[in-house]
């Protein structure tokens, strides 16, 4: 999809563990949405999670910053285990950035205020410094000139780039992307993907739920396929796309790539 050249040799994966999920299960009422998830993600990995709708992929990454609560098993993020302890949850949330399908910018605040709010109120960064950081990241996503506008005045692609900048202002170690391009017009998908590629090149640990298979091929070092709340297959992108081993994966790939 994206034709920005990416130098894969610059993408390195460390031996240190960023996220560890062990025997994790989750239910919505009586419905078993996530079943025995085991996953270890090292620092610097770019993981793409795909699968049919309702397969639990969004729920999985929302468990990583505790937007959803898991009922059994263990999730350790950056050495902090997610339990009911609010301190741990807030600590993890300030280390983990998240980008949503519908951007979820705060419509009553300007772009700049969106970006400085959490650093000022959560990290207690002085306002001047927070503004400098925000402008740095807004420049990075190539919209510094929109800083004093409101989200409602921006296009979808611009809003999503602001959302990425807003997360980066907290200087997270890990970024979660929950279908970041699914709500965008086709013309705007590229600008968001380019921003994400840039981020990958800088060594960010990324977990992306997405249907952009071009992005997965180009950037991911691992693709995870989920169905019915389980991890069905995971592999390096080349092998995943060229030699899917499970029938379910093959069917899925033929459906999304076949037309």
């Amino acid at each position: 999809m994206s034709d920005t050249a990416i130098d894969r040799s610059r993408l390195t994966v460390s031996d240190e563990v960023a996220i560890q999920i062990l025997g994790m299960n989750k239910w919505y009422g009586a419905f078993h949405v996530l079943r025995d998830i085991n996953l270890t993600i090292n620092k610097g990995e770019r993981i793409v999670v795909c699968g049919p709708s309702g397969s639990g992929k969004s729920t999985l990454i929302r468990c990583i910053n505790r937007l959803e609560e898991h009922q059994s098993g263990k999730i350790v993020v950056d050495g902090i285990e997610l339990t009911n302890d609010l301190k741990h949850i807030d600590q993890v949330r300030s280390e983990v950035g998240m980008v949503f399908q519908h951007f979820n910018l705060f419509p009553h605040l300007t772009i700049l205020e969106n970006c400085t709010l959490a650093p000022i109120w959560v990290r207690k960064v002085p306002k001047k410094e927070a503004v400098e950081t925000a402008m740095y990241y807004l420049e990075k996503v190539k919209i510094p000139e929109q800083a004093n506008k409101y989200p409602g005045q921006l296009s979808g692609g611009q809003q999503q780039r602001v959302a990425i900048a807003r997360s980066l202002c907290m200087r997270p170690n890990i970024m979660l992307f929950d279908e970041p391009t699914s709500a965008l017009d086709p013309e705007m998908i590229k600008e968001v993907l380019d921003t994400m590629i840039q981020l990958a090149e800088e060594g960010m640990t990324m977990i992306c739920v997405t249907h952009e298979m071009g992005f997965a091929r180009q950037v991911a070092n691992r693709v995870i396929f989920m169905d019915q709340g389980q991890i069905v297959e995971q592999n390096e992108p080349e092998a995943f796309f060229n030699n899917p081993r499970s029938d379910r994966t093959r069917l899925f790939l033929s459906q999304i790539l076949g037309h």
Partner: peptide, 27 residues
């Protein structure tokens, strides 16, 4: 108010009272 506003506030690490005061109540 859309649920996404609460989620974005949570994901940024704002606690309950800060989220209410800065994000939820103004809207």
């Amino acid at each position: 108010l859309p649920r996404g506003q609460y989620e974005a506030a949570d994901a940024l690490g704002l606690d309950y009272w800060k989220a209410q005061r800065l994000i939820v109540m103004p809207q």
